[in-house]
Amino acid sequence: MMDLPLAYGAPVLSASMRSMPEDFQVDELPAFEASGEGEHLLLDIRKRGANTVAVARQLAQWAGVPEMGVSYAGQKDRHAVTTQRFSVHLPKRVAPDLALLESDEVHVLASTWHNRKLQRGALAGNRFTLVLRGVQGERAAIEARLQAIATRGLPNWFGEQRFGRDGGNVPAALAMFGGRRVRNDQRSMLLSAARSALFNRVLAARVEQGNWDGALEGEVWMLDGSRSVFGPEPMSEALAERLARFDIHPSGPLWGAGELRAAGAALALEQAALADEQALALRAGLEQAGLKQERRALRLRPALMRHAWLQDDVLELAFALPPGCYATAVLHELGSVADASRAGAPAAE
């Protein structure tokens, strides 16, 4: 994650990740229990080195249904071992042999019926187990940084995956806003990249000022585990207590049409961070595309965080994150982590 400030100061390590798919494991945390009835077959699938869209296409062919009859809660990394849920619409409740799906890349862990199609974002979060190899750095400093992250949390950056190879999605979004025609699926991706870039700018300004996890005058608060926001309202002992126990978080804008909700110092910071020519063009494009102002928490705290040294230079990290949050945000606060699956790619700093 290049060109983003660090909340905890100088890097404490350098390492590589994804030397093999097993070094990057992600398990979806389901948001609901299957009903056991209905015409949507829920499949919990473990995939290795496989793209989510490609697996969905494979499921459609297996079931003999259109690709739109297959859905998933979220896309998962290809260069990884991931567990995720898919749904397949089978109105006659007749499923082909599950054994036909088995391969080196795909393994069905469980199947059950449900009465609704699986919606995007229908997950409680993701659990990560990452192995960093070739770790260089002082062990005591690394462990102190991990403890600080577990205790205080970290900036809730949008990860580099959102911006495409070499960050090309933002220039592509500007070209689209300038009139270049794109496919509908590309349009959605580019709108998300534009929004994410603006949010990261505001968060970067907060990190540089050291108030990414504190309160500014005119702060808009987001409830933990929710998209609900409230405020601005004057800081109080009650709000400070809720902030300290991670019940609420300061928030930043997901750009769209409408007025910014923040006021005072928070509003001034957001306006200043998004005042240059490129930001203004992204803002205008998002407004013209019909998106509305929303908010996103500026900080996150990984849950169930632990680490283990597998060898002197091999570190295993495990933690869970809410939906829409990125493991690369955690790695960013540690130092320079190169992605071995992308030969010649820059480090994910």
Rank of each mutant, 00 (worst) to 15 (best):
L4T: 09
L4G: 10
P5L: 11
A15Q: 04
Q25D: 02
D27H: 12
D27L: 10
E28D: 14
I45K: 03
R46L: 10
V53S: 12
L59T: 01
A63K: 09
V65L: 01
E67K: 13
M68Y: 13
A73H: 12
D77W: 00
R78T: 12
H79L: 04
L90K: 01
D97K: 01
S103E: 11
H107I: 05
H107E: 13
V108H: 11
A110V: 02
W113S: 07
R116Q: 15
R120K: 14
A124R: 06
F128H: 06
T129A: 08
R133D: 02
R152F: 10
P155W: 05
N156Y: 12
R162F: 12
G168K: 14
A172F: 02
L174T: 00
G179E: 04
V182G: 01
L198C: 01
R201K: 07
A205T: 08
Q209F: 02
N211S: 09
E219Q: 13
L223T: 04
S226N: 04
G231L: 10
R245S: 06
F246I: 06
D247P: 00
I248V: 15
P250Y: 06
P250N: 03
L260W: 02
R283Q: 15
L298M: 12
R299K: 01
L300S: 03
L304R: 13
R306H: 09
H307R: 07
E316T: 06
L317Q: 14
A318Q: 15
A320V: 00
L321A: 04
H332I: 05
H332R: 15
P346Q: 13
A348M: 11
